[in-house]
Write a protein that binds this DNA or RNA. Sequence first.
RNA 1: CGGGGCGUAGCGCAGCCUGGUCAGCGCACCUGCCUUGGGCGCAGGGGGACGGAGGUUCAAAUCCUCUCGCCCCGACCA
Length: 580
Amino acid sequence: MNQPMKFSQLFMPTLREDPAEAEVVSHKLMVRAGLIRKLASGIYSWLPVGLRSLRKVENIIRDEMNRAGAQEILMPAVQPGDIWKESGRWTAYGKELLRFKDRHDHEYCLGPTHEEVVTDIMRREIRSYRDLPVNLYQIQQKFRDEIRPRFGVMRGREFGMKDAYSFDKDDPGAETSYRAMFQAYINIFKRCGLRFTPVEADSGSIGGSFSHEFMVLAETGEDAIVHCASCGYAANTEKAPFVCSAQTQAQDLDAPPYSKVLTPGMHTVEKATKFLNIEAREMLKTMIYKTDNGPVAVLILGDREVNAIKLKKVVGGESDPELAPPSMVQEVTGVPLGFIGPVGLNMPMLADIGVRALGRVATGGNEPEYHIINVVPGRDFSVTEYHDLSAARPGDLCPQCQGTLTIARGIEVGHVFKLGDKYSKAMGATFLNAEGKKDPIIMGCYGIGIGRTVAASIEQNHDESGIIWPMPLAPFEVTVLPLQAQDPEIMAAAEKLYQDLLGLGVEALLDDRDERAGIKFKDADLVGIPFRVSVSRKSLAAGQVEFKERRSSEVRMIPLAEAAQTLLGWRNDQLAQAKA
RNA sequence: CGGGGCGUAGCGCAGCCUGGUCAGCGCACCUGCCUUGGGCGCAGGGGGACGGAGGUUCAAAUCCUCUCGCCCCGACCA
């Protein structure tokens, strides 16, 4: 890693202006500072300086993964379609899976993830419970044909990822593996100098959640997370349980019989509630979803949105439930979009728990151009089951402490997930337990987006002048600037300091270009090297060099003779601090 | 997949509506002088034939058609 590097030889094409195509700071700065270049939409090359930071993230990950007992492997990027058919994902995965055929017309895909491949490895080799547990990981390029690549390396199609897979003989073992990875992730992101929070990504099943996302808090994050200030609870908005703020009410037995109201053209909650002069939450909307187990009706409060992930958990199946297209709605219910209601609807009806909080509601009339009012759940229709089906949102109650949830944005840099026996069962990865009986291996998977972690770090650490690397990710730790490069004395002093730093194991960059001081300063700021040391006529006359910290802008003079040693100490302080 | 925008020199852009010395500006690059602690100044210079294909026209960067690429927004909450 500590390759000597002089600026005059370094391939680091910096740009004075923002690239036209970049939207977010990290993308702009990564291009401007010469870390990356685009080849095609969502496909990037990493140039030397960017690669150095990328490698640092990788090495921190390796270090922590190895320490947690995982072993590194490398699996193929190209995978045969067969194993995907075995797992059932050949059809379930959707368009993000880039498929193609080889010359023999055999089907292949570019791996978006590697559950199938590792499971295949393990099913061939694992015989006995004595062979378990095992945890394997790799750092490799993945390909997902994203609908809309965005934000540079943050949501690319090809991207570097660390993925680990744990194999255990039973649930307690899998839980232990999960916890070890969870802790390793905390260590990793801490060492990367990120401000992050692990977030529950599963709607808390009994015995705790076994899916967490590691979110880096940033304005430009693509994910919304809900957060409770009072107890620290955090969860992905898509997955957070919805705690109904109102108490469950008894049926409103005083309600008059329901009655039809002509509501021509009022096919949205907004229009209908306005027309009926009621609040959106007093309206029950009926959504028809297409699921692997057939169409279902989902009943939910008018001001809420269905969370497809929660729904999937209830209905089961491989693929995500999708909202039924209008034609299908008509076909299944006999009613056009916008007027469906639970009364007289003959199909499975799942209701959100929020519905229970209402004694009487208005709903679609189940007849074109009609709504009905004074509908009492339980009296006028009965639902198949009540479930938590709506997406959480700010203002909801915290599921842990009854505090109020607020919303924040985050970048998902890591995800730990207990898979259970999904793949091992489907692909026949079994072992003989102590009783000599066959059991499926219990798996877990654990991913980290590497390039995304680099981008997230920049998103969190920058100013108007450029990147501000945290020491552990910095492509170079110190840059030495001879301000008058033509002056042999200055150049010699700078060169000596540079060599001394290298000798001490400090990653130094010597800006030996014959450029004006301003240009060197600008580039140093742009690239974000944490420590800058200037050697000039003025400073040299006093036997000193000028030190400037990128982050704090703090400037101080240090004696030239002790400079290397001093910088080493400060650098070590910062590295140690990141670990603590 | 739907909507919108863009493609002119390495980068950032103007020109297009109202076809005809419009191929131009800033930065970068090259040469020389100068300057030397925050992208310095002056002078000179090289580089593109306007994403691609086809068409209209006496004439096309400019108008039309197709095509490729890139970017943004949206993707059905009944």
